[in-house]
Design a protein around this nucleic acid. Structure first.
Length: 730
DNA sequence: AGGCGCCTTTTTTTT
DNA sequence: AAAGGCGCCT
């Protein structure tokens, strides 16, 4: 055994540079790893964990690794398994929010919640605040739910409790907040729901009120590692400080130049002050960049050094200078899109690149539209990360609200959302009457429904309908334990008759809604496959915290479009940063505040350092915003780049479509043959919208219940339900 | 009482 | 350019 162990240890350290190796092997006590863009930060983190397990005999279950996205967590998990050459099953690796959500599930009752609590996203929060505003007869115009929720969110991020805040409120708006904030928290509790901020604040509450619980966790998580530390907020910092208080074995990895979430409460001081907070801390600097050419790095550096305060570090590379950056100056946004796509075609044809080598990054999601149009026109496959998020689409939220209501009938927002969807003839007036009755009698909304017969001034016919709705939900509540999450969801959707209704509508919008509902059911199915014991509430908890980047498939051969924020942590051979105009990047709202400008500059830096070989920057002279044409000038950030690193685009050569176009590889199917109309049998080639091409291996069942095992080229063996998978027979 | 259509506002980034 | 709010009509 010792022999193989040494071999493994050697292989764990092999290929690391001196600084990386020092950071990896420093395992006792706090450490701060300042890792510049492309300096192998994920590598250090994964190797360090592997080293802990393999060399220091730390049990995987005592290691807690916190990342920024679920995707990063998954990848880290896989990479560690590869390094130590066996699957690690019991290591905790996830985002702050998902980790603490599951921690809360265990101890929710201690805080007056039950473990099936709902997780409210921003829309749900605003919905709840809207009802509170109207309950208090406040002017909804003057006090918009979004303004209120963002103010409350900011207070929560700064760990200001309702009690503390009510003492300091001194403006009219603050008085309103002081009134709504405690009521908002009360209603969340009554709904057995937590918002994203609560997922971090409630554990702190738990640790304060139950020190023995904290002590247990302190002992359990003997080694804590945190990625993207520059983007943690105050509650996250407090949680780390609490959990690491005994062991002091905390390693944080980050780069203050890449701190881009200040608006969400991230506190760059967390990384600036880490050495003060953990005085015995050892600091490591990773400054060798392995990702980008020297030109790209120099350009990024010339911009970021304009920031007023930074931690001391400078990236360097052994790589050659590479191509200069190319600046595309355009008249309009559409011309910009056209030129970008032209460059992609050019690179594809002349440099033998794949479409997956390209990323187009932009500041705001609204910018994707023109780019999409251009890509579609040219028949180039693309994927968009973000934008209208899947789980925020109306039809998806509707179905999720049903599932949430069944799991947690106290959930006021969800129950109100679906009580009249599909239309049941229960209108606002009835809703208001029930709501007032509930307030008066201190009931949750669902309890109000249960006592509908006692509520005055509602027509009997309407009361019957409310009764039917309540019965519908109760029926599924009793099925929670006997049906799998998937069975319950499909039965429920079938009984609602949403799909046939949408089909009858027939518009392309209705059809896409239908697809989305099916896709959701398919997600439930995959979840049940992955977690046979998984409860519906676990599925709901998972989807509440999932993001689009988590679902992004980097293996599909398509151009990737996303915001600069979403691109954090990724890399691409060729990167375009579009819309580099003052007012858009940096965004106009940040123009009169130096701290905000600095953050925009970091955002530009993050974007630029995603590029490995070639970076294109583009700007337009005029741009449509809010349906208005606004004249604009190139971003100040472009001016901050040394001229000799950059060349203006002069080519303007258009390469005809036939020259580069390879239909069999990139064609987006125009006519899809629906698979469920055909007889499925093993051996048939199919294409799944998400998983790509695959071959049917096994067929189970018939008709609507038919399930298939399909071996996909890129993602391996998956089980799918014919009815819900959008399969195309090839 | 509830449904439908016109007119307003709105988006910066997202766990 | 799209979504939500408001008011009018059934």
């Amino acid at each position: 055994m010792p022999k193989s162990e040494t071999e493994k240890t050697v292989s764990i350290l092999r290929g690391l540079n001196t600084e990386q190796r020092e950071a990896v092997t420093y395992t006792d006590g706090p450490s701060l790893i300042l890792a510049g863009a492309g300096s192998g930060k994920t590598r250090v983190l994964t190797h360090k964990i592997a080293y802990l397990i393999d060399r220091k005999h730390v049990s995987a279950r005592n290691i807690l690794a916190l990342t920024f996205t679920n995707k990063a967590a998954r990848e880290m998990h896989d990479r560690i398994s590869k390094l130590i050459k066996h699957q690690i099953v019991d290591m905790r690796c996830g985002t702050f929010h998902s980790f603490f959500a599951s921690l809360l599930r265990r101890d929710a009752d201690k805080l007056g919640f039950s473990s099936n609590f709902s997780i409210y996203d921003e829309r749900d929060q605003q919905e709840l605040i809207k009802t509170i505003v109207s309950d208090n007869r406040l002017d909804g115009q003057k006090f918009s739910p979004s303004a209120i929720s963002s103010r409350i969110g900011r207070l929560k991020n700064n760990m200001v409790s309702p009690e503390k805040f009510s003492e300091s409120a001194n403006s009219e708006f603050d008085e309103v907040i002081a009134a709504i904030y405690p009521e908002y928290q009360r209603r969340l509790r009554q709904s057995n729901a937590m918002d994203f901020d609560d997922l971090l604040l409630k554990p702190l509450e738990l640790f304060q009120q139950f020190p023995e619980v904290l002590a247990q966790y302190q002992c359990w998580w003997s080694h804590i590692l945190v990625d993207e530390y520059q983007d943690t907020n105050r509650p996250q910092y407090a949680l780390l400080k609490a959990l690491a208080d005994q062991s002091k074995n905390i390693s944080v990895v980050g780069d203050d130049d890449q701190s881009i979430y200040r608006w969400r409460g991230a506190n760059i001081r967390n990384i600036w002050d880490f050495e003060k907070d953990f005085p015995t801390c050892k600091t490591f600097r990773l400054e060798q960049n392995y990702r980008s050419t020297a030109n790209i790095l120099a350009a990024a550096h010339s911009v970021i050094t304009k920031n007023s305060y930074r931690m001391e570090k400078e990236l360097w590379t052994k790589r050659e200078a590479g191509d200069p950056l190319t600046l595309l100056l355009c008249q309009t946004g559409s011309e910009e899109a056209y030129k970008i796509i032209q460059k992609i075609q050019n690179e594809f044809y002349n440099h033998k690149r794949n479409f997956s080598d390209f990323a187009i990054l932009y500041r705001t999601n609204a910018q994707s539209r023109l780019l999409e149009d251009a890509l579609r026109r040219e028949g180039i496959a693309y994927v968009i990360v973000g934008g209208l998020r899947f789980y925020e689409r109306k039809e998806v939220k509707d179905v999720l609200a049903y599932l949430r209501a069944v799991c947690n009938p106290s959930d006021e927002v969800s129950v109100k959302r679906i009580i009249n969807y599909p239309l049941r003839g229960i209108g606002d007036t009835t809703l208001q009457k029930i709501h007032e009755y509930c307030i008066e009698h201190q009931l949750s909304f669902f309890q109000g429904l249960e006592r509908i017969t006692d509520i005055p001034n509602i027509q009997n016919r309407t009361k019957e309908r409310v009764g039917e709705f309540r019965y519908f939900i109760s029926k599924y509540m009793t099925l929670l334990n006997s049906l799998s999450a998937f069975e319950l969801a499909t039965t429920l959707v079938d009984e609602l008759g949403i799909l046939p209704q949408l089909k009858q509508e027939g518009t392309s919008e209705a059809l896409s809604r239908m697809e989305n509902v099916r896709e959701l059911l398919n997600t439930v199915y995959e979840y049940t496959q992955r977690n046979p014991q998984g409860k519906l509430q676990d599925f709901l908890a998972e989807v509440a915290l999932i993001t689009d980047i988590d679902k992004w498939d980097d293996r599909s051969n398509a151009v990737t479009l996303m915001t600069l924020h979403a691109a954090k942590g990724l890399e691409f051979p060729v990167v375009f940063i579009a819309g580099l105009e003052d007012g858009l990047m940096p965004l106009s709202r940040s123009l009169d505040n130096d701290d905000d400008i600095d953050e925009e500059r970091r955002l530009f830096y993050v974007g630029a350092t995603r590029a490995m070989e070639k970076l294109y920057l583009s700007a337009a002279n005029e741009r449509m915003r809010y349906g208005e044409t606004i004249p604009s000038k190139p971003s100040r950030f472009i001016g901050e780049i040394d001229d000799e690193l950059m060349e203006a685009d002069t080519s303007g050569v258009y390469i005809p479509r036939e020259m580069y176009y390879k239909p069999q590889e990139t064609e987006i199917p125009v006519q899809k043959r629906q698979a469920n109309k055909k007889q499925m049998r093993p051996g048939i080639l199919v294409r799944h919208l998400q998983f790509g091409k695959g071959v049917v291996k096994k067929v189970d069942g018939h008709g609507d219940d038919q399930k298939l095992d399909i071996l996909f080229e890129e993602v391996g063996l998956k089980k799918v339900v014919v009815k819900y998978a959008k399969l195309e027979i090839l």
